[in-house]
Design a protein around this nucleic acid. Structure first.
Length: 483
RNA sequence: GGUCCCAUCGACUAAGGGUUAGGUCGUCACUCUUUCACAGUGAAAAUACGGGUUCGAAUCCCGUUGGGACCGCCA
């Protein structure tokens, strides 16, 4: 379903590890924007840094995107005539355009070593100046350049930033932003290993891939003038830009490993539902506004319908795990029980529980889902359904179980349950109320010991549900244990 | 330090010249449930500060303060 219009956006991660929550948010907003406008969502892999390349990272990113329902229209394995979508496979293209820049006088060769540049920066810092390339190779003569190249000195190609100009960019989130070119670094465009830097590759690819809107994180804001200079040098139209507010740690610094997990996959693994993740992330830095009222829960389709860049905030947003947990619990409580059970089975198996009895498993899920903030917590709540013995949580509970009234109740109840044709929630209730009448024991004195006898704990799911799941044999056994 | 961005309850946010500044999470209280949880009701809780503009400012402008991002042959 490609574009009838020309809306084309891309998510362009570099394969240096797992998909970060911040990256996921960028991907999501690009996706929502594309789908809302009936445009095209493109995945491009920016693998131009050989030193940070991580094997399988691309596969993982694609997998995570797919798991969360953010499938791309064009990208690796899905050609849309503007590929390849791996930058490492586009080296000749960058080389060609870089040569053009050189010819036009928009770029130049530079021969400093890393050490020399370090020294330069240290000095600048000492003098309290902005650290940036001092443009010392800008005016090397053609002969000097040729000679250095011939003698095998490694070189990079740098952008020749036009001096004394002002660049004004319109950002869809932030409005007009002004930059002085004198403060813009003569960015390296082509590294000494022949690979392009982000800035060169990004601009060329966005143009060649006909990207209409660049939607990316705010950390890119300060490199915008470099990109504009490049677009201008090539004589290309600058795409529309939108810089998204950062996702923040609790201390309001850029979201990073430290405070907790930042890999989207970690959240999936813990059992945050994909609906939750999408819903929650969408509301970080964006809100549909007044028309949607007090609504907090949005399906992906609703998000697509409602999304607009104009409603994106300009301030950073703290990633708040408490609200994520609440939202996940809300989804879990309202999820289709069969589907939820299906999702929970791997977690149950992980926790070492037998899930072969699907009817029982479903009942257990139904009885305990309300406690779950995430699926991997299921193991903490279901021990009682599989134990061969109701181990007392606290030693002193025993006193309650061996009183005269408890014994009376257990005896009567065990007898009734034993003679039930089937132990269900309602037959349990029926039996218990009969016992209440017959023994005259009621209230806390009745219920508490029974609960403890069956589960070993004062707290837990509803007693009738527990009884039904445990079934006759165990219930009777547990009740008679204290006689 | 330089450049750029940002500023409504603790957090996410609504209101975009006129509202008792609204909602959600979290917190607290109460109700319900013979448990916990769920659910329901309610409470505390914010326009950073100072100047303008205006009849009227959270909203527009300026300044201050505070926070953040970037300043790599990383992306």
């Amino acid at each position: 379903m490609s574009s009838e219009n020309n809306i084309r956006v891309r998510f362009a991660p570099s394969p240096t590890g797992e998909l970060h929550i911040g990256g996921l948010r960028t991907a999501l907003f690009n996706y929502l924007f594309a789908k809302h406008n009936n445009g095209t969502f493109i995945l491009r892999i920016e693998d131009t840094d050989r030193t940070r390349f991580v094997d399988q990272a691309t596969e993982n990113i694609i997998k995570t995107l797919n798991t969360l329902g953010l499938g791309f229209d064009e990208g690796p394995g899905k050609d849309g005539k503007v590929g390849p979508y791996y930058q490492s496979q586009r080296l000749e293209i960058y080389k060609k355009y870089c040569d053009q820049l050189l010819e036009q006088g928009n770029a130049y060769y530079a021969f400093e070593t890393a050490e020399e540049l370090d020294e330069m920066r240290k000095l600048q810092e000492l003098e309290g100046r902005q650290t940036m390339y001092d443009r010392r190779a800008r005016d090397l003569s053609k002969d000097e350049v040729d000679e250095k190249i011939k003698s095998g000195i490694p070189y990079v190609i740098r952008l020749k930033v036009p001096l004394n100009e002002e660049i004004i960019v319109h950002d869809m989130v932030r409005g007009n932003v002004k930059f002085e070119t004198n403060l813009v670094d003569d960015q390296v465009l082509l590294k000494s290993d022949g690979f392009p830097t982000y800035h060169l590759a990004n601009v060329i690819d966005d143009h060649l891939m006909e990207i209409s809107h660049v939607i990316r994180g705010e950390e890119w804001m300060t490199s915008v003038p470099k990109h504009v200079i490049l677009y201008n040098a090539f004589g290309w139209e600058v795409p529309k830009m939108a810089h998204l507010p950062l996702l923040l740690n609790a201390d309001r610094t850029k979201l990073s490993k430290r405070q907790g997990d930042v890999a989207a996959e970690d959240y999936i693994k813990k059992g945050y539902l994909k609906e939750t993740i999408i819903n929650f992330i969408a509301l970080l830095g964006w809100h549909p506004g007044e028309e949607s009222g007090d609504k907090e829960i949005f399906s992906i389709d609703e998000l697509i319908k409602l999304f607009s860049v104009e409603k994106v905030h300009s301030a950073g947003a703290v990633f708040n795990i408490d609200k994520l947990n609440w939202m996940n619990n809300d989804y879990i409580k309202n999820y289709d029980l069969d589907k939820l059970t299906e999702l929970l089975i791997p977690f149950l198996k992980d926790a070492g529980y037998d899930t072969s009895d699907t009817v029982k498993t479903k009942k257990i899920v139904g009885a305990t889902r309300v406690y779950l903030n995430k699926l991997n917590e299921i193991g903490d709540h279901i021990k009682i359904f599989f134990a061969d013995d109701a181990v007392l949580e606290k030693e002193e509970y025993k006193d309650m179980l061996i009183t005269e009234s408890s014994k009376k109740v257990f005896t009567a109840l065990a007898y009734k349950i034993e003679n039930l044709s089937e132990l269900k929630a309602d037959t349990w209730k029926q039996s218990l109320s009969e016992v209440q009448k017959e023994t005259g024991v009621k209230g806390k004195v009745l219920f508490k010991p029974v609960r403890i006898a069956l589960t070993g704990s004062e707290h837990g799911p509803e007693l009738p549900a527990i009884a039904e799941i445990l079934d006759k044999e165990k219930v009777v056994k547990f009740l008679r244990k204290y006689l």
